[in-house]
Design a protein around this nucleic acid. Structure first.
Lengths: 174, 174
DNA sequence: GGATTATATTTCACTGATGAAGTGAAAAAT
DNA sequence: ATTTTTCACTTCATCAGTGAAATATAATCC
C-alpha cells in the first residue's frame, strides 16, 4: 500500500514529462481526469471494504438504498437498472441476492403483469438502519477540513463535469 | 441510457428523503461522495470505451503510460504494481499482454537479478503517440466551461480529499 | 552457510459483468 | 379474434478482471 498521495505525485511528474514531449496534451485537464479516476477508485474501494462485512457489494447496496429512499419503498427492475446504472441481467442477480436475504420481496405488478414490483421489507429497512450509521464518521473524516464553501464549490464543479460527460455521450462526435 | 444528470437528480431527492428519516446522516457529504462515485465511474467507462478500439484496458493503458512518462522508459513489475494500484498477479498478466504486442520488453535487471526490468519499446512509444492525441478533444470537452480558477479549485479539492482518504486508510479506526 | 526476506511468476478459483436465447404478458396489426 | 410485434424480465453460458496461495529464484542477514 503506497497511498494516493504518492501516486498523485508520480502522476504530476509523469504528465509534466509527457507534456514536454507532446505539447498539445491538455496538461491540467489530463491531471484533473487522472485525479478524479484515482479518487473515484479509492472511494469505491473504501465503500466496498465497508460493505464487505455485511456481505453486500456496491450495486446491491445502491439498489437497496434506492428502494429505501423511495417514498413507497418500491420500484421495478427496469427502473432500478437505470438509476443503479446496471444491466437487466445484473439487476436480476441483485434481486435474487437481496430477496434471498429477505431484504426485499418481488411481486407481480397490479396494473401491468409484465412488470415485477420490488419492495423493501421491514427487515430490509432495519438492515439499512443498522448498516448506514457506522458509515457516517467515515464520511465526516473524508471531508475533514472542507469548509461549507469548499463543499458547495466541489458539488458545483462535479455537477458541471457530470453535465459535460452527458453531453459527450449524447453527441458521440468528439 | 439515462444519463448522469437524471441519476444525480434522483440521488439528491433520495438522500434528502433518507435524511428526513435518519437526521444524523451527513447529507452534503453523502451527496458529494455519491457524486464522486458517479462521476468517477462515468469517467472510467468513457476512458475504457475510448481504449477498446486499441484493445487496451485501463490498467494496461495506465501501465504503458507510466513507462512512457519515465525519463528512461523503464521500471520494474513491483514499482508498476504500486503506481498502477495493481496486484502482482495482474502486473504479470499486463506485462504478458503488452510484451506480446511488442510494446514493452522484459529483461533481467543488472544489479538485482530477482528483479525484472520492463522497458517501453520504440513501437510502444509510437503506439502511445498514436493513441493519445485523439483523446485530447474529449478531455477539452469534459472541462468545457471550467475557468482557470475552477480547474485550480477542483484540483485543490480533489487533492485534499485524496489526502483525507490516505489518512483514513493509514488509521483504520473511524 | 543455512535461514530469512524479497521479487516475480504460475496455478487455481472467484466475483461480477455481459450476451444470447427463452418466457410470459401486453399492445398493435390484420 | 387471432396473429404478430414489442416489452419486461429471467436463465444460462461465458468472459474479463482480479486475488490468494504455492512456487522458483535471488539477495541478505545473522
Amino acid at each position: 500500500m503506497i497511498g494516493l498521495g504518492n501516486c498523485i505525485e508520480m502522476m504530476d511528474e509523469g504528465i509534466d514529462r509527457v507534456n514536454q514531449v507532446i505539447p498539445q496534451l491538455p496538461r491540467d485537464e489530463a491531471k484533473l481526469c487522472r485525479l478524479l479516476l484515482m479518487v473515484g477508485t479509492g472511494l469505491e474501494e473504501d465503500l466496498e471494504f465497508q460493505l464487505k462485512p455485511h456481505k453486500l457489494n456496491h450495486s446491491e447496496f445502491l439498489t437497496l438504498m434506492i428502494l429505501y429512499s423511495r417514498p413507497d419503498g418500491s420500484s421495478t427492475p427496469g427502473e432500478l437498472c437505470e438509476f443503479a446504472s446496471q444491466g437487466a441481467t445484473n439487476m436480476t442477480r441483485i434481486g435474487n441476492a437481496l430477496s434471498k436475504r429477505g431484504l426485499i420481496v418481488r411481486g407481480a405488478s397490479a396494473e401491468d403483469r409484465r412488470r415485477v414490483a420490488i419492495r423493501i421489507t421491514a427487515a430490509g429497512r432495519r438492515f439499512v438502519q443498522k448498516v448506514l450509521p457506522p458509515l457516517f464518521p467515515r464520511l465526516d473524516t473524508m471531508f475533514d477540513g472542507f469548509s461549507t464553501t469548499d463543499k458547495r464549490n466541489f458539488s458545483h464543479l462535479l455537477r458541471k463535469l457530470a453535465h459535460n460527460l452527458d453531453q459527450l455521450h449524447a453527441d458521440p462526435a468528439p
